[in-house]
Design a protein around this nucleic acid. Sequence first.
DNA 1: ATGTGACTATAAGTCCGTA
DNA 2: ATACGGACTTATAGTCACA
Lengths: 77, 77
Amino acid sequence: MSIQLLFGQNVRLAREKKGWSQDRLSDESGLHRTYISGIERGVRNPTIEIVQQVAVALDVDIQELFADLKVKASFYD
Amino acid sequence: MSIQLLFGQNVRLAREKKGWSQDRLSDESGLHRTYISGIERGVRNPTIEIVQQVAVALDVDIQELFADLKVKASFYD
DNA sequence: ATGTGACTATAAGTCCGTA
DNA sequence: ATACGGACTTATAGTCACA
């Protein structure tokens, strides 16, 4: 898995955990909505400045956005 | 402190911990020597792909390169 | 062995849409 | 509410000569 996809999925998880739409995260981070979409899909390769902007908006540590993805528990249920 | 400088200083710490020159890190990462220099000084704003390349070369977790910098123990010694 | 300014090619990031 | 495309501006990637 690419680092872009790992990052993107972690952003999506953190966003959904807050119950936010991409539009909402866009507003909070100051980044364009379509760009957020691209990040979450792993098709963008953001700079660390953008990473920080997203982390601040989501109120999470940058490190959390690079955390290894856990296999969903439901996979084993 | 900017995220670029935080990242850069963490890279420098990890590199020096291994006793590597910037030249050596350049070889190991495939990135140009002057680019490594720019990263460590915080004047570059690398993408997450570059971050991963550096982390792999230094054999550290990406998260370590975003760790809060500790005040040097020697400051209190 | 490292810092710096300058450079070109490429990608980041924005904004307009459509589905 | 999200994915995706095209066109656009700005910044980064990557490199060099020199201090």
